[in-house]
Amino acid sequence: MSLANDRIRKLLTIVTEGAIESALVRDLDRLGAHGYTITEARGKGRRGVRNAGWDASSNIRIEVVCNDDTAAAIAAHLQAQYYDNYAMILWASEVEVLRPEKF
């Protein structure tokens, strides 16, 4: 399958504290994400071990497929609003979507 430019999108992956899920969902909707997937996550990082067994220490992983402008807006907002006070990491990668009209 060949890559077509009209099918290339950004995949933003956010791993953060489950306690802020509701606020993040509102932000993603407001910033233009057409959808997202949220799963529970666990692991270890600079702020210690995080597991999904206890709400106060649980992590979530949010994946958003979107265009470049939306990805940039989300990334800038997360950095400005959350990085200083919450355990959060964010990375972006290019993906080819097979149903580009959905994004």
Rank of each mutant, 00 (worst) to 15 (best):
L3S: 02
N5H: 06
N5W: 00
N5M: 03
R7H: 08
R7T: 04
I8Q: 00
K10R: 11
K10P: 00
L12I: 15
I14E: 06
I14M: 08
V15A: 05
V15F: 01
T16V: 00
E17P: 03
G18V: 02
G18P: 05
A19C: 03
I20E: 01
I20Q: 02
I20A: 03
I20Y: 06
E21R: 09
S22T: 10
A23C: 05
L24W: 05
L24T: 06
V25D: 01
V25N: 04
R26G: 13
L28P: 02
D29Q: 14
D29N: 11
D29S: 14
R30T: 12
R30Q: 06
G32M: 12
G32H: 11
A33K: 11
A33L: 03
A33M: 07
H34I: 09
H34E: 04
G35H: 08
T37P: 00
I38P: 02
I38Y: 03
A41L: 02
A41T: 03
R42G: 07
G43Q: 10
K44W: 12
R46G: 10
R47V: 10
V49S: 13
R50D: 04
N51M: 10
N51Q: 15
A52T: 05
A52F: 08
G53M: 05
G53P: 02
W54V: 15
W54C: 15
S57K: 15
S57P: 06
S57R: 14
S58Y: 02
I60W: 06
R61G: 13
I62C: 10
V65R: 12
C66N: 04
C66S: 09
C66Y: 01
N67I: 01
D68M: 01
D69H: 11
A72V: 03
A72L: 04
I74Q: 08
I74W: 05
A75L: 10
A75T: 14
A76M: 03
A76Q: 15
H77N: 15
Q79T: 12
Y82K: 10
Y82R: 11
Y82N: 14
Y82M: 13
Y83A: 15
D84H: 07
N85D: 11
N85R: 12
A87G: 08
M88Y: 04
I89R: 13
S93H: 08
S93M: 05
S93R: 08
E94V: 01
E94A: 05
V95Q: 09
V95W: 12
E96T: 13
E96A: 12
R99A: 12
R99V: 09
P100I: 01
K102W: 14
F103W: 04
